[in-house]
């Protein structure tokens, strides 16, 4: 799971709204451009922001491995499907066929040079679209996100729901492991048939905990006062303005070069 990494980097000190602006700019730019150079530029910008964020990249090795699998999958699928589209009118340089015979409905699945080129563009776009948004949960404490939602005038009960669900995630994993271990202790081998009792027990355990939580909210008189205050506050400062301007400049650079398809 992608979760908050405690640090005091410049990114951590920024207002979450400026990071959301950055994400929106990078995503818009990645969707609008089909240029290798511009997509590489976006990936490099995101990578630099990752470095500034002081996030231990080694910790996220599995995330990057999944990303690599997606890149390869994206390239392979587009290498086959891009030139197979009914509206495709360009050239078609076949490298090899995945299927030895022409299979009904799916055909022989030819891998083409044009498809591979498009696959590279598509994969780069997906990497850019995924790398930038990961910055927000990694560098923003959940309590700051709650403050953002409050500043956006979300109802208090919805904010409570989101806060509690975030708290419930590790608890659910913990309950899952406890139940699974209990199942393993009773049996030498556990199979698919054990999944339904596991789910049932997990549900009941989680819901019992939620009832206790609701009771503690009542005893603490949660929601008694209509106006809520917070020790922490968020402020869109000078650094946030600079970072937002930087984000718009990145978007502007990409937009100015959008016409150059395929670099």
């Amino acid at each position: 799971m992608i979760e908050y990494v405690n640090s005091n980097s410049p990114l951590h000190r920024l207002d979450p709204r400026s990071k959301i602006i950055f994400v929106l700019c990078i995503m818009a730019a990645a969707i609008l451009t089909s240029s290798y150079i511009m997509l590489s530029f976006l990936i490099i910008v995101s990578a630099i922001v990752w470095i500034i964020a002081d996030v231990p990249i080694k910790k996220f090795k599995p995330v990057f491995l999944v990303l690599l699998v997606f890149v390869l999958m994206g390239m392979l699928t587009q290498a086959v499907f891009y030139t197979d589209r009914p509206d495709y009118t360009g050239s078609k340089t076949v490298l090899f066929n995945i299927m030895p015979y022409n299979v009904p409905v799916i055909g022989s699945l030819p891998v083409t040079v044009e498809g591979l080129k498009y696959g590279l563009v598509f994969s780069m776009r997906m990497v850019a679209v995924l790398l930038a948004p990961m910055i927000v949960p990694l560098t923003t404490h959940p309590s700051d996100m709650i403050l953002v939602l409050r500043s956006m005038r979300f109802p208090e009960w919805m904010i409570l729901l989101l806060t509690m669900s975030i708290r419930f995630i590790p608890l659910t994993f913990q309950n899952f492991n406890t139940i699974r271990n209990a199942q393993k202790l009773r049996k030498i081998k556990t199979g698919y048939k054990d999944l339904i009792p596991l789910m049932e027990t997990l549900l009941i355990t989680s819901l019992k905990t939620s009832k206790q939580m609701a009771l503690s909210l009542e005893t603490k008189a949660f929601g008694y006062s209509s106006k809520r205050t917070s020790l922490k506050t968020i402020k869109f400062g000078k650094n946030d303005v600079i970072f937002s301007l930087f984000s718009f400049i990145v978007l502007g650079i990409v937009l100015l070069n959008t016409g150059a398809a395929y670099g």
Partner: peptide, 11 residues
């Protein structure tokens, strides 16, 4: 209800 919904959301 909200606490139970939070549990379902986590699930």
């Amino acid at each position: 209800d909200i606490a139970m919904m939070a549990a379902f959301l986590a699930l």
